[in-house]
């Protein structure tokens, strides 16, 4: 499974970074950087929480 970011929607609020910091980090310019995209079974719950927590609905998990 992979996590996908819609950068058109993302405004860099960064809640995802606090839920799954191995995957997401907001940079100095306030833009989201996807640190990795492949999700292991152990990581799935954290990434799902990050997806649900996004106020702009910019995150998606693709199988």
């Amino acid at each position: 499974m992979k996590v996908v970011v819609d950068f058109e929607k993302c405004t860099g609020l960064g809640i995802c970074e606090s839920m799954a910091p191995e995957f997401f980090e907001v940079n100095d310019d306030g833009e989201l950087v996807l640190l990795k995209e492949d999700i292991s079974d152990e990581e799935l719950q954290a990434v799902e929480e990050a997806v649900a927590s996004c106020p702009t609905e910019a995150l998606l998990i693709r199988s």
């Binding site: 860099g12 609020l13 960064g14 809640i15 970074e17 606090s18 910091p21 980090e25 907001v26 940079n27 100095d28 306030g30």
Partner: peptide, 15 residues
């Protein structure tokens, strides 16, 4: 303020 790259690291620490 304008610290988007900083703020969530503290959220994790507080948690």
């Amino acid at each position: 303020v304008n610290g988007q790259t900083e703020i969530m690291k503290y959220r994790v620490m507080i948690a």
